[in-house]
């Protein structure tokens, strides 16, 4: 971590130093740049310097001098250089040096004082986060375990419920079959008894009817006989018949 940080800082400083330009490093405005260029202008083959030399070059250029034209074009390029914007990122070299030195000092101070504190805080935070993650993992594991246990218990409960339902269904089927068979037996028994009752009633009715008929017939016979038996001759005849029959049977 520390080595990578130092390497990055060194790369930044080198890039800034290498990309610094002269104009940018001057730190002057476009006007002062043009003014300086005009004041310090010197041209090959033209006498004088500064504004005078620029004025002479203009005269010769207007006169159609080919050499003056080339000088004019080179001078215009130098002036256009004043129009180049200073680098918004790259400071001047001195500033880079001072800034870099301050950066190094600040970096050293930070590494010496701040980084350990920050590192310690980071480590504590990391540790807290790690502890939190560990706690979360442990709680997740515990939750997973609880969930697994709950799911197992739920599965057991479902299995037990299914078993109870099956058992209840079997018992219900058994009870239903038992009740049905018992009801069928009762119905058969009732039918049999009803048939027996009907048969007995029929026999009793026939017997009663026969008894009634016999009573009537016997009553009529007894009435007739009663009147006949009041006749002494009839009684005598019955005794005579008895005597004759006993004598005949045994004789």
């Amino acid at each position: 971590m520390s080595k990578r940080l130092w390497a990055a800082a060194a790369v930044v400083v080198a890039a800034v130093a290498l990309s610094a330009s002269a104009a940018g490093a001057a730190g002057e405005t476009v006007g002062s740049c043009i003014f300086d260029e005009l004041g310090e202008a010197q041209f090959e083959g033209i006498e004088g310097d500064g504004f005078t030399a620029v004025k002479e070059l203009k005269t010769q250029y207007k006169a159609g001098d080919k050499h003056a034209k080339e000088l004019k074009e080179d001078f215009e390029k130098d002036l256009e250089g004043c129009l180049e914007a200073p680098n918004p990122i790259i400071p001047e070299v001195t500033e880079i040096i001072w800034g870099g030195a301050a950066f190094v000092v600040l970096l050293a101070l930070m590494k010496w004082k701040l980084f350990p504190v920050v590192k310690n805080l980071m480590e504590q935070r990391t540790q807290r986060i790690q502890d939190s993650l560990d706690d979360a993992d442990r709680e997740r594991a515990e939750a997973a375990e609880v969930r697994a246990r709950y799911e197992a218990e739920l599965a057991d409960a479902k299995a037990e419920a299914a078993r109870l339902v099956d058992e209840a269904r079997d018992q219900a089927a058994s009870v239903r079959a038992d009740l049905q068979s018992r009801a069928e037996a009762d119905i058969a028994d009732m039918r049999e008894r009803a048939a027996a009752d009907v048969e007995a009633s029929k026999r009793q009715a026939i017997a009663d009817l026969q008894s009634e008929v016999s009573d009537i017939a016997l009553g009529a016979a007894e009435a007739v006989l009663g009147r006949s038996l009041e006749d002494p001759e009839m009684q005598r005849q019955l005794v005579d018949d008895y005597i004759a029959r006993v004598g005949a049977d045994q004789g």
């Binding site: 008894s211 008929v213 016999s214 017939a217």
Partner: peptide, 29 residues
């Protein structure tokens, strides 16, 4: 006995009574 004779000689009974005949008739029904 209504009519006829019932003779009992020792353990033997010779029943020729009208009552006996009516009883037989009733039984035959």
């Amino acid at each position: 006995i209504m009519g006829g004779v019932v003779a009992t000689i020792g353990d033997e009974v010779i029943d020729g009574s009208v009552r006996h005949r009516l009883s037989q008739l009733r039984d035959s029904f």
